[in-house]
Amino acid sequence: MTKEKWLVEFQVLNGRRPTDQEMLEASKNNFETMTSAVAKKSFKIEPSLFLKIAIGFIVAIFGYVVGYLFM
Rank of each mutant, 00 (worst) to 15 (best):
residue 17 R to P: 13
residue 38 V to I: 10
residue 44 K to W: 09
residue 29 N to R: 07
residue 47 P to S: 14
residue 8 V to I: 12
residue 50 F to N: 05
residue 45 I to G: 05
residue 18 P to R: 04
residue 70 F to C: 08
residue 41 K to R: 09
residue 38 V to A: 11
residue 57 F to L: 00
residue 65 V to E: 06
residue 8 V to S: 11
residue 6 W to D: 03
residue 54 A to L: 07
residue 18 P to E: 10
residue 65 V to M: 09
residue 64 Y to C: 06
residue 6 W to P: 01
residue 49 L to T: 07
residue 70 F to P: 00
residue 55 I to W: 07
residue 68 Y to G: 05
residue 54 A to Q: 06
residue 58 I to Y: 00
residue 59 V to H: 03
residue 20 D to Q: 11
residue 42 S to D: 10
residue 26 A to S: 14
residue 32 E to C: 10
residue 47 P to W: 05
residue 44 K to G: 15
residue 11 Q to S: 15
residue 8 V to F: 12
residue 12 V to C: 10
residue 6 W to V: 13
residue 10 F to C: 09
residue 58 I to R: 00
residue 1 M to A: 12
residue 2 T to P: 02
residue 3 K to V: 14
residue 66 V to Q: 06
residue 71 M to R: 03
residue 55 I to G: 00
residue 16 R to S: 05
residue 25 E to I: 11
residue 51 L to F: 11
residue 66 V to R: 03
residue 63 G to E: 03
residue 20 D to F: 15
residue 61 I to F: 01
residue 31 F to D: 01
residue 63 G to R: 00
residue 64 Y to F: 06
residue 36 S to A: 11
residue 62 F to E: 03
residue 67 G to F: 12
residue 15 G to I: 08
residue 33 T to Q: 09
residue 52 K to D: 11
residue 5 K to Y: 12
residue 64 Y to E: 04
residue 47 P to Y: 03
residue 42 S to F: 13
residue 60 A to H: 00
residue 37 A to T: 15
residue 55 I to E: 04
residue 25 E to R: 00
residue 30 N to L: 14
residue 63 G to L: 05
residue 30 N to R: 07
